[in-house]
Amino acid sequence: MKIIVAVDSNPYSGHVAHEVGKLAVNTWADITIMGVLSPLEDTAKARETLEQQLVKYRRIILDSYTSDSCPYNKDAVEQWEQTEDGYSMAATGGGLKQLQLVIAKGAAAQEILLYNQNSESDLIVISCDKDLGCSWQSGKVPMKVATEATCSVLVVKETKDPEQVVCCLDHDHVTQYSLEMINQLVTLYGAELKIVGISDSDSLKENIEQKMQQLLEYYNNLKLTPWLEVVDGATMPSFISKESQKNLVALWVGPTSFLNRFFPKKRISSFISDSPSSVLLLR
């Protein structure tokens, strides 16, 4: 698994480093911690501050390993170098897996999306405030990344671990890739799994029930017993809002998703902003 951790200078980015640390301990993922300098603030001082922050977040991830079995090179010294494609990078190699630091210059959301596209990462982890709204350019950065990325995005809020991972899946497009991402988060948090199907007509209900049955078989084969629930499309927003009070909500938002009808981009942005819990957007 390849993960990009997008950070800024706000305290919630320290929290996201702790969360990724937990994920790293389990998955031994290749990780890139990424910060972006706005062209307006690209001074030597600002760059140095961001470099120090990224080094600090790297240390937080490394400190998650309490035993000596760490796949990253713990002793590597961060040597910043300019790459041909314009990034400032500290590739702390020498370990089994990569834990590298990258600084881009430009508009934060665009740079994160571009880096993700080129690195073909599986997951972007980004954070914003636990309270309503988000400080990162008034929330524009996490929302834009979450709604426009081509891979899955986990928006982390500073809350306690979820009791349940509630997955709202498009009955036509339940991908193996999505299920695998969900399974890792269920394992990470030791959470229960609830799978939600969405209906808006009788004929659709049959399709959903069939798909839910297949999912139940998939999980039963893995000796897991998820909760299953079918929710009417019209009540979906209020259902999601209620679930997000203490659970991690995962929405499948691929380009052809049936869920786009109930959750267009604008509504997803508001949902992420208002959700007191973390949100996973699956693709």
């Binding site: 390849k2 301990v25 998955t27 993922a29 035993s67 079995s69």
Partner: peptide, 19 residues
């Protein structure tokens, strides 16, 4: 599982999903 795998001498450990 990661730790035990390496104690058993595996070369690499890939968490799903991966490309």
């Amino acid at each position: 599982t990661a730790k035990e795998s390496f104690q058993q001498g595996v070369l690499d450990f890939l968490a799903k999903p991966f490309k």
